[in-house]
Amino acid sequence: MDAILIQILNGLDKGGAYALIALGLTLVFGTLGVVNFAHGALFMLGAFVSVTVQNILTISKKVKDESITFFDAYKETPYLEIWWGDTGTMIIDYAVPISIFVAIPVMLLIGLAMERGLIRFFYKRGDADQILVTFGLAIVIQEIVKANYGANPIPTPAPEIVAGSAPVGSWLGLGADLVYPWWRLIYLFFAITIISTVFAFLHYTTFGMVVRAGMHDRETVGLLGINIERRFTIVFGLAAVVAGLAGTMYTPILPPDYHMGMDFLVLSFVVVVVGGMGSLAGAVAAGFLLGILQSFASMNEVKSVLPAIDQIIIYLVAVIVLLVRPKGLMGKD
């Protein structure tokens, strides 16, 4: 029972990340018709907002370590700690949550700049052109990040208060041995909150209704005198914010490096295809579904019967879904 519950949590947590990235991908595809291979890079940029905030908060007074004479080794004390003592230490400890508030405007600006500066010139071009230019853009962004932050992962820990594991078993009366990392639970809650917010925004605001109408029939909406292009540009920015926040919050789970966007991108595309291209609900449902399936497929008991199933389960499901429902789980003709 414990093992099953923990794999469900794992799957939901993993699925949360897939769903957040896939949601942004689907938003962009559904509104602008662009297959955005640079979306993973936005996830990575969000993570590096966290790194940057942490770097800024830990700007330090350096005192040369005199015991080492042949290279510059320093003993470093962050200015925040020098100025504000324990309060400064606490602010540094909360670098990741603070990053969320920085990531929202930063990612929105990056998204808008990307759409206005490059993507819009490719709306009327073929899929191959769109894929090539967005993939190229992703590589450029990766290399810029690598040049500035190096190739190695950078530790970006969660606040000390949520660094350990939550006694999930005790909560459910299943014993004290069943624990799950606090930050992963927070990430799951965060993913559900963001997804709900995006859905609420699209369903319960005038802006959202116009966007949904535009996704359904762009021409008619345009004929009504609504500047649908401008709204779609904002949607691109919104998708960038969702991907960026997913990355920012993921940093305590996975020390970020320049390549982390690509690691998630391929799986997220599979999620979008399984969910149904352009279906927001499909992307979210498929994200969680595939996350849970992948998690269960990794259990030793499953792998002893079906070796290496964890490596192919997602693609296997994708093949089956596409054979049975070519438009995906929730795609429409």
Partner: peptide
Amino acid sequence: LKEVDFSQYITPVLN
């Protein structure tokens, strides 16, 4: 080799 999230491999260790 390409795995980045080891949660599904770590959780079986717990029990």
